[in-house]
Write a protein that binds this DNA or RNA. Structure first.
Lengths: 211, 211
DNA sequence: TTTTATATGTGAATAATATCACATATATGA
DNA sequence: TCATATATGTGATATTATTCACATATAAAA
């Protein structure tokens, strides 16, 4: 299995996120135990799929007794190495960037946006809770907070430049909102989110179902 | 192939988006013809994959001559039925909602956010270009603009209620940013975007590569 | 015009993923 | 405590997705 730039989140990992979401829902409803059957139904997969996935990630339940929800959540957190906080920087303070720095949920999962960056001096204030800094300060911040992951929310025209620069400064993983295929060396992870594509595919399938 | 709620974008459709992105890039660089080999390299897949995908979507090239980029782009647009504008509503004017209504790129793909909605009366102004309306007006707008697709950007606690209400009003497809598994009847499409999951999976793979 | 080199398009082969089926362990109730 | 019903965990099987391999068409060159 080649670890490469051109890269999709493995579907079993994706399902693990879904399971977590479902488990949190079940917990909220007062359950503390769950069976693969219930979880599968909620997550939209078969019970066997759930068990196979758990098996893959070395998560084990009790024969006949199912799974303790708290155990499962802890085990899933374990997969994501939840012990320590993760520092993240974000480059580009446009619409998307501003939304993300204010997105509180990252904190609940111990992902901390330590600073944001923009070339536009007029944006360089503390208006949005965390500092908006000039790109010259990337090096300092990345070193100071041991940042390994960055969010790219710049216009597509400058995305490749920003990426190259961040890789030089030691960033290994990217969440990219710019609609371009970024070129990277081996062992650099880029997860692209293309909002247009996401909306468009909804429209595509909606029309497919309707007709 | 069961069309269901619990639902992932087919990977060949996803690749079609990637191809488009690459093609736009090639075009910008001055190319007007492309071979499956080039496109595959750029998109991070094999040339055979490119051809199989095109074949699946009934997109055909010229033996020996490759593909005209403009033809390809037109054919891809055809897959997405690009002739007419698509009206979309968005519910929830928090961080994410506000970013999306200002996101210009939707327009380039003829996806038009015709109105946004929020229960908070203090948000009900025209501050962000399009009107922010109370939810009571959903029915009017959906009828007036023949809306079939909605973006849900409300807190998770109210997402299911909003979804149910929108389904009642005839919405068939959803782009959902609330981190919950929404329950829907058959033939309703929900595409979930979970920003925490996306960032977290970058971190996951980044740590995997590093170690 | 004819030749030739080369890119497409697609069945066949392979690989990856998901489901089935059942042996095993154990929670539950008698 | 013991019997039993039932949920897990996982090899075997089926399905789906990708790659291989090559016949075919044709753009480009002679």
């Amino acid at each position: 299995m080649k670890q490469n730039t051109k890269y999709n989140i493995k579907s079993n990992l994706k399902r693990l996120f879904t399971y977590r979401l479902c488990l949190i829902g079940f917990k909220r409803k007062g359950f503390d135990r769950i069976f693969s059957h219930n979880l599968g139904e909620e997550a939209g997969v078969t019970a066997e799929q759930v068990r196979k996935d758990f098996s893959f990630f070395k998560i084990r339940g009790n024969k006949k007794g199912g799974y303790q929800i708290n155990d499962l959540l802890r085990a899933i957190d374990e997969v994501f190495k939840y012990q320590h906080n993760q520092h993240v920087v974000i480059v580009g303070m446009g619409n998307i960037g501003r939304a993300l720095v204010q997105y509180k949920r990252f904190l609940l999962r111990k992902m901390i946006i330590v600073a944001s960056f923009d070339i536009d001096p007029s944006k360089q204030s503390r208006r949005w809770g965390i500092p908006v800094l000039p790109l010259e300060m990337l090096d300092d911040i990345i070193k100071k907070f041991h940042v390994k992951v960055a969010i790219i929310a710049v216009p597509e025209i400058s995305a490749q430049d920003v990426l190259d620069r961040l890789i030089d400064l030691g960033i290994k993983g990217f969440l990219n909102f710019a609609p371009v295929m970024l070129k990277t060396p081996e062992n650099i992870i880029v997860n692209n989110i293309n909002l247009c594509d996401e909306l468009e595919s909804v429209i595509y399938y909606t029309e497919k179902v309707i007709e």
